[in-house]
């Protein structure tokens, strides 16, 4: 990308669209337990938004917008998943046994809270972390 073409329209549109995609991906992630969606799809959708940003701008801009260490994110996701699984051991249950219950929460009303969501957050983070690590690594290498 030596001679930078003028892609102002692309950049403006991308900024808006990727924001919408990320919101949608978060919706997909949380809805995954009842309707299509879940950690994998949510994570992939988020990464797709980030990839779009990357294509519209360049890798350096993306790094300044999102100063995350994506490898750390992968590790954190894995750790969350494993710990969620291991948590069941504390209650004398087999590894990865999930539990859920219904709670009255302010604003949301009666809500079911589920440890599987924690596990799924791990999956979500790993998927984003992995995809972005791959893309960043390839994009940065000369």
């Amino acid at each position: 990308m030596k001679n930078k073409p003028n892609d102002l329209i692309l950049q403006t549109v991308t900024t808006m669209i990727s924001f919408i995609i990320i919101l949608f991906s978060i919706h997909l992630f949380f809805a995954g337990h009842y309707t299509p969606g879940g950690g994998f799809i949510g994570g992939l959708m988020t990464s797709a938004a980030l990839v779009l940003l990357l294509l519209a701008y360049d890798i350096k801009t993306l790094n300044t917008i999102l100063p995350f260490n994506f490898r750390m994110m992968t590790a954190a996701g894995l750790l969350i998943s494993v710990l969620t699984g291991a948590g069941a051991l504390l209650f004398n249950q087999p590894f990865l046994t999930h539990a859920y219950d219904y709670f009255e929460l302010p604003l949301l009303g009666k809500t079911s809270l589920h440890t599987a969501v924690l596990f799924d957050i791990g999956v979500y983070l790993v998927v984003i972390g992995v995809t972005m690590t791959i893309i960043q690594t390839i994009g940065e290498s000369e």
Partner: peptide, 20 residues
């Protein structure tokens, strides 16, 4: 299949980088 799709993405990415 869902698992397999995601794994195959990882494998393809790995192959690509290995190739270049």
């Amino acid at each position: 299949v869902l698992t397999a799709i995601v794994i195959s993405f990882g494998v393809t990415a790995f192959f690509l980088v290995l190739a270049y």
